[in-house]
Simulated assay, not measured.
Amino acid sequence: MRTVIVGTMTATYSIDDEPAGGHPLRQGASPAAIHAALPPEDRADFDADYAKALDRAGTTRDLTELFTVLEHWRRLAVLQSEPEIFRRVAERAAELRTDEPATEDPAAEAQADPGR
């Protein structure tokens, strides 16, 4: 694992010299590991965000956005790796956003109005 400091941001990325046996979603997880850990319904959005950030990195020669996108999706994959915990967190987030008890689909409710 390598750490890169870009301005005030620190980014970690994965390379092949890591010892075997680490958690596949540890910091610096590979894009393939993140993609595989996401629920099927999130994979297309990950692929689109990753492709966009990768394209920009190739154009700008700046990896900051790419690392940010990977870390965002890695964290979502970790959260969603425990469905019951994720459901409770989403339910609580929905309740905090609306000041009302959560609906039957708290994850959808929490994402429906992200600016609230």
Score class of each variant (00 low, 15 high):
A90K: 02
S81F: 13
A53I: 00
P40K: 09
G7F: 03
R88D: 15
A36M: 06
V6Y: 08
D49N: 04
R74Q: 12
S81A: 15
D55I: 05
V4P: 00
V69Q: 00
E71G: 05
A48D: 08
A57E: 09
T59W: 15
Y13F: 15
H72Y: 13
H35A: 13
V4R: 12
L25C: 04
E18W: 10
A57F: 13
P83N: 12
L38K: 01
R116L: 07
I5A: 09
E82Q: 15
D49R: 05
T10I: 07
L76E: 08
A44T: 12
A94S: 15
T60E: 11
D45G: 07
Q27E: 09
A107F: 07
E109R: 12
Q80D: 13
A102E: 00
A102L: 05
P40W: 08
L79P: 01
A102K: 03
Y50K: 02
P101W: 04
T60L: 08
D42W: 11
R97P: 01
S30L: 14
P83E: 11
P31A: 14
D113R: 09
P31Y: 05
R2F: 05
T59L: 09
E109G: 11
R75D: 03
S81W: 11
V89D: 01
L38V: 03
G58F: 04
D105S: 13
R26A: 00
M9Y: 08
R92L: 06
R56E: 10
Q27M: 08
A107Y: 08
A44Y: 10
V6Q: 14
P31V: 07
D105T: 08
L54Y: 09
D45W: 11
L63A: 08
P24E: 03
M9E: 12
F46A: 03
A32S: 13
A37Y: 02
A32G: 06
R26P: 01
L70V: 01
V89C: 05
V89A: 14
D17S: 13
H23L: 05
I5T: 12
Q27I: 04
V89P: 01
A32R: 14
E84Q: 12
G22I: 12
E84A: 08
R88Q: 07
Y50C: 01
A29D: 01
H23T: 04
P114W: 03
H35N: 12
I34K: 00
L70Y: 00
G21A: 03
T8F: 02
M1C: 06
M1I: 02
E41L: 10
A33L: 03
A36Y: 06
A20R: 04
A107D: 10
H72R: 15
H35Q: 13
P31H: 05
A32E: 14
E65S: 00
D55R: 13
G28V: 02
S81Y: 12
P31M: 07
P24L: 02
D49Y: 04
S30F: 05
F86M: 06
